[in-house]
Design a protein around this nucleic acid. Structure first.
Lengths: 331, 331
DNA sequence: CTGAAAGCGCTAACAG
DNA sequence: CTGTTAGCGCTTTCAG
């Protein structure tokens, strides 16, 4: 026999309307009645049916989270911080891995719509901008984290990628490196990092060399392959800026395989400061993103949007920091 | 104006029952009518309301996933494989991090009940056995992955932890090590690993030394601290079996800090074969769990349970394999 | 302060 | 083959 609001009402000797009111803290109910209801709920181990409530127009308290790949430590750490904050304020998270694949993006967005999520946070590069736009137009509050889509007006939390790129590049420069390679991922967030790299090199009156610039996907394997390519150049770089830690881990592998001494023969800077950066050897000098803070902030922004959508969107740019460990050395 | 099944019916010039039937592929509908309905749905961009359907008794197609901590690479990899398989068969995943905390376990289980999940997969150590039991008694299909709860009758997929422990220990023994320390996590899955360690040592006619056995939590930091403790012993071990990769990464850090040459001065074996095991230096010799397979299998088991609960539960024990890399050497 | 009653969007008989 | 209709469990006026 299923326990519904009716069972509770009966047990407590009140009407279902009364029970509903005590559950939702709406209307005015005497303390005595409240107590009776609570006792009945407890006794029957009653759990309100979220579906029914949602049908009746109540919020679902569900938000969707789109990440490219949860098994990438950066995203799993982001996901963790988003979830923690969400649960703190009574929101629940449904997570989907898009693999930056347009088809999956579409499927999941449609799924989330069907689930009537109250909002969605997009951590994914998100190829299909138009779908997202549609979602927003339909009135589903949406926020972006660790990725930007300039054409869309939505609340966004990112690290200052340009500054991060600057930090990494200028630090390498300050160490005396003049031949600096860069391995970046072909997603929006990496563009400012790359731009900063170029700008900083040029400011130092150094040439930009196309063969030093590689775009690829964010896996250890790709980092490894890209580094191999860079290291096989005749005039090979003395330092590599890998635009995320996964890539950097791959670079380290390739360098070791080539019997290079690290960091003497090759300086490496990563980006993200994930768990990986302390397990590699040498430990990774990397640009740190304040993941916990970003996650919490983006949820707060989403909540704000859910309560009352403001026409004026925020774009929060948090400052990255360079964490110097052992993968970098003076030339 | 909200798009409901009624809007579609009107647009297509049919009844809502007909629309429902074409959505659910039930009953017999002429091709012509189907087409009309599809066109209407497309035009209005209609998405069925999952809540309403669920209320009417339809499955929610939602499953809950309980992990201790998604930012632990092992669990994020598990989560990924579970999600992939789930989405393949049309199930969606709601993820919760329990931190092995009884209070969170309770909150989330209650939440999942409210969301009317069709099933739950528990990857967590799960302290509150009674709550889980309650859930099962209520008829919510539940399965266990990478953890066992012998007292509960439920479908389970694990790696053969005992065999894993045996593999690790006997390999170390075969390398000539006689003084082998072990750092294990205080969760159920680690018990067989520890038992295997003890059995194997005893079989080799070697003594079991209490000071070589440490129980702690699964973090790099704890691995580091535990290793320090082990290495400060007068008669310190020449090999350490860390019961997961995170712990092993910490051991490596401690060993380096103590200026030990790896693997000559200290052999280290991990467990899990996560992304970490290839980024450490030396790369980690570790016991590999077939994560992809386990995730897929557990979802299939859950699905089976959802379709038709069998009184006889399965307990699937997959074989681990020892992956030999560079963190181990002959004494 | 409390209860009766009207649906939310959808599915599943049942009737035609 | 297609339509009518009765609720699923809950929230929300509106009366009492």
């Amino acid at each position: 026999m299923k326990i519904t609001i009716r069972s509770v009402a009966q047990e407590a000797g009140v009407s279902i309307a009364t029970v509903s009111k005590v559950i939702n803290h709406t209307g005015k109910i005497s303390e005595k009645t409240k107590k009776k209801v609570f006792i009945a709920m407890e006794k029957l181990n009653y759990k309100p049916d979220a579906a029914a409530a949602s049908l009746r127009g109540k919020r679902t308290k569900l938000i969707g989270l789109l990440v490219p790949d949860i098994s990438n430590p950066f995203y799993s750490e982001i996901a963790r911080s988003i979830e923690d904050r969400s649960h703190e304020i009574g929101l629940n998270v449904m997570m989907c891995n898009t693999d930056n694949d347009v088809k999956k993006e579409k499927t999941y967005l449609s799924l989330l719509t069907s689930q009537r999520v109250d909002g969605v946070v997009v951590a994914s590069a998100f190829r299909s901008t138009n779908l997202l736009e549609e979602m927003i137009n339909k009135g589903v509050p949406s926020v972006l984290i660790a990725s930007e889509i300039p054409s869309l007006s939505m609340n966004t939390v990112t690290v200052d990628d340009y500054k991060g790129g600057y930090l990494a590049t200028s630090y390498l420069l300050s160490l005396g490196h003049k031949k600096i390679g860069i391995i970046s991922e072909d997603v929006r967030s990496n563009t400012p990092r790359l731009t900063a790299y170029k700008d900083t090199i040029q400011e130092a009156q150094l040439p930009i060399r196309d063969e030093y610039i590689i775009k690829t996907e964010a896996t250890i394997q790709k980092g490894y392959e890209s580094a191999k390519q860079l290291l096989s150049l005749n005039d090979k770089p003395t330092a590599i800026f890998a635009c995320n830690d996964l890539l950097a881990a791959g670079v380290i592998q390739a360098a070791k395989e080539a019997n290079l001494n690290l960091p003497e023969d090759l300086s490496i800077v990563g980006f993200d400061n994930t768990v990986l950066s302390t397990t590699t050897s040498p430990m990774l000098t990397t640009v740190s993103q304040p993941i916990k803070e970003m996650g919490a902030k983006v949820v707060d922004l989403l909540l704000q949007e859910m309560e009352e959508s403001k026409p004026h969107k925020e774009r929060l740019l948090l400052s990255p920091e360079l964490v110097i460990r052992q993968s970098t050395a003076r030339l």
